[in-house]
């Protein structure tokens, strides 16, 4: 048996045949992800502010009472939110737990399904409005249509991080399959998802090769494929050098002799 040194062409072909599939996936997913603009993927155009301007700053005098009533409270936010068929000033209290209080009486408030429906429609931005315009969907005679409403308490939904639970999932019947996630305690908008986001998330999963959580960039097979792809690239570079540098140079050398 005679030993033949492996040629760059052979290495390039075999490595590409065996492991090149991930290079193709990286190319397609990478190109798709950089073409899609990040603000669009984040769905900034899908939502608008739903709270009205704070008009009664005197409620801030109640902060001391809130702090004394809830000693674990580390942060209190005053907002003017649509609850119980009308706007009212409320405190969103963060501490060991998140609470919603009436800013005037300091009584705890509970967000109902009806509140979530009303708030979600207010958060939902009409397609014809600019993303920054703080106007309501209803004001444009464009009544958004809620297709499905579901209270999430268990971390089963891949679109929403578990730390945001419990939350309401509000699906709208539109062409973008817009889904809003609202806090079940405060009614605050947690996040928004749509078809392009789901597509981007799928591309990201394929790109980082974490097919379960879609967040771990340290998978060992990712490292292995990176090294193999590097070998494909280096062998390709050697072929290019042979083609465009070595051979013409040798020919030139031969001709001059």
């Amino acid at each position: 048996m005679r030993f033949k040194p492996l040629k760059a062409r052979k290495i390039h072909r075999w490595l590409t045949l065996l492991f090149g599939i991930q290079l193709i996936i990286w190319s397609i997913t990478g190109a798709a992800m950089v073409i899609l603009q990040l603000p669009y993927i984040h769905g900034d155009h899908l939502v608008q502010p739903a709270d009205r301007s704070v008009s009664e700053f005197t409620y801030l005098e109640n902060i001391t009472s809130v702090a004394n009533e809830y000693p674990d409270a580390t942060e209190v936010t005053l907002v003017n939110r649509y609850i119980n068929n009308g706007f009212q000033h409320v405190f969103v209290v963060n501490g060991n737990a998140t609470r919603l209080l009436d800013a005037a009486t300091l009584q705890p408030l509970t967000i109902t399904e009806q509140d979530i429906r009303a708030l979600a429609k207010r958060y939902y931005a009409p397609r014809n409005a600019p993303s920054n315009a703080p106007s309501n969907a209803q004001a444009n005679n464009h009544e958004p249509n809620i297709a499905q409403l579901q209270l999430l308490t268990e971390p089963t939904e891949s679109e929403l991080a578990a730390r945001h639970l419990p939350a309401w999932q509000v699906r709208f019947a539109d062409t973008s399959n817009t889904t809003l996630y609202l806090s079940a305690v405060t009614g605050s908008l947690v996040t928004q998802r749509h078809t392009a986001w789901r597509f981007f998330d799928f591309m990201w999963m394929l790109h980082i090769m974490d097919y379960q959580d879609r967040s771990d960039i340290t998978k060992p097979w990712l490292l292995a494929f990176t090294v193999l792809t590097l070998l494909i690239s280096i062998s390709g570079l050697m072929l290019l050098v042979q083609k465009y540098l070595s051979r013409p140079w040798r020919r030139l050398w031969r001709d001059s002799e």
């Binding site: 801030l60 902060i63 942060e75 936010t77 907002v79």
Partner: peptide, 22 residues
């Protein structure tokens, strides 16, 4: 024990959407 709320300054800002205290 006490908070000095900047009422006047907040009113001068105009269209205030939220006020957070920490």
């Amino acid at each position: 024990e006490r908070y000095v709320t900047p009422d006047l300054q907040l009113q001068n800002l105009g269209n205030v959407r939220s006020v957070r205290v920490r």
